[in-house]
C-alpha cells in the first residue's frame, strides 16, 4: 500500500526488445509487449512459445539478457532492490499451482501479505481476510489447510491472497488449467468482476480458448519468443495468419507424417532414456 497515492501510469507494463536465455537456449527473442491501465490482457501461445517466461521476467524473478521492462512506470532492472520490493506490493500474482504456503491455513495464507507489509491490528486483518475470502466464495473455509482443498478452491484461495493488498496489477498463470468447465467459468467471472469493481489491470496467461475469448480485452499471441500479434478478440478470431489459425483450430504442427522418417526416428540408436 506504499505508493497507493501515486497515480497509476497509462501503461502499466512496457516491455521493450526483451531477449532472455535459459542456459544457452534463447527463449524470448526481441519481445515487445504493452499493457494499458484497466485492461485485461490475455497472453496465448503454444507450449514453449515463451508465455510463462515473459511473465517471470515481468515479475522480476530473473534478469534479462537484453531489453527493458517497465512495470507501473518503473524500470525494474534499474531501480534499487528495495524500491523493487515496494513496487511488488502493488502487484498480485496467482500461480498456476496456487503456491499457497502449505504450512499455513487458507486464512493465514490470505492474511500473510497484510501481516508482512502493514501495521494493521489483528482484528482489521481478520476482517479484510474474511472480505477477500468472501469475494472468491471461500468465506467459511479459512481454517482449512491447502492440502484439504480441491483444485478450484486452491485457485480461488490463491486469488484471494493475490488481491488482499488491493494491487494495481494482477497476474494469472493458467487460471483455468485443470479445472472442470463450470469452475473454470466461475473463475472467469471472478476475473471480470475484479476488474470492473476494483479497476485492476490484469495479465492472464492461458491456453484455454473459450476462457481467453470471454475475459480478454485484447489478446497477445506469442510464437517462438516473439509477439506475433496483439489485437482484440474479434481481430484474433478473424486473423489469417497460419500460426494463429493453427492455434485457434488446435491443428497439429506436423500434419504430414513420413513413414520412413518416423521409423528411423523410433529406431535411432543414440536415443537413450536417461
Amino acid at each position: 500500500m506504499t505508493s497507493q497515492n501515486h497515480k497509476t501510469p497509462d501503461k502499466v507494463i512496457e516491455v521493450t526488445d526483451l531477449v532472455t536465455h535459459y542456459g544457452t537456449r534463447k527463449i524470448l527473442d526481441g519481445m515487445n509487449f504493452e499493457v494499458e491501465r484497466g485492461e485485461i490482457r490475455v497472453i496465448m501461445g503454444g507450449s514453449g512459445s515463451g508465455k510463462s517466461t515473459l511473465l517471470w521476467y515481468i515479475l522480476g524473478l530473473y534478469k534479462p539478457t537484453e531489453g527493458r521492462i517497465k512495470v507501473l512506470g518503473e524500470d525494474i532492472n534499474q531501480i534499487s532492490f528495495n524500491e523493487h520490493l515496494k513496487l511488488k506490493q502493488n502487484i498480485g500474482v496467482s500461480f498456476q499451482s496456487g503456491a499457497l504456503f502449505s504450512s499455513m491455513s487458507v486464512g493465514e495464507n490470505v492474511a500473510f501479505p497484510l501481516r508482512e507489509f502493514t501495521d494493521l491490528d489483528e482484528n482489521t486483518i481478520r476482517i479484510i481476510t474474511r472480505m477477500k475470502l468472501e469475494v472468491v466464495n471461500l468465506g467459511g473455509f479459512h481454517k482449512l489447510m491447502p492440502s484439504q482443498l480441491s483444485g478450484g478452491m486452491i485457485k480461488r484461495a490463491a486469488l484471494a491472497r493475490a488481491i488482499v493488498m488491493d494491487p494495481k496489477l494482477l497476474f494469472f498463470d493458467e487460471p483455468s488449467a485443470g479445472l472442470d468447465p463450470v469452475v473454470a467459468s466461475e473463475i472467469d467471472d471472478l476475473i471480470l468482476s475484479l476488474r470492473d469493481n476494483m479497476g485492476m489491470s490484469m495479465v492472464v496467461v492461458t491456453h484455454e480458448l473459450e476462457s481467453a475469448f470471454k475475459i480478454a480485452d485484447r489478446i497477445t499471441v506469442l510464437d517462438q519468443g516473439k509477439n506475433l500479434l496483439t489485437a482484440s478478440v474479434e481481430e484474433v478470431k478473424k486473423s489469417k495468419n497460419k500460426r494463429i489459425m493453427d492455434l485457434l483450430q488446435r491443428r497439429s504442427r506436423h500434419d504430414k507424417l513420413d513413414p520412413e522418417e518416423y521409423l528411423r526416428r523410433l529406431t535411432q540408436e543414440n536415443y537413450t532414456l536417461s
Partner: peptide
C-alpha cells in the same frame, strides 16, 4: 511448489 517464487513476487525476501 513455487512457494519461494510466491514469496519473491510478494516482495518478501
Amino acid at each position: 511448489s513455487q512457494e519461494i517464487d510466491a514469496l519473491n513476487v510478494m516482495g518478501v525476501v
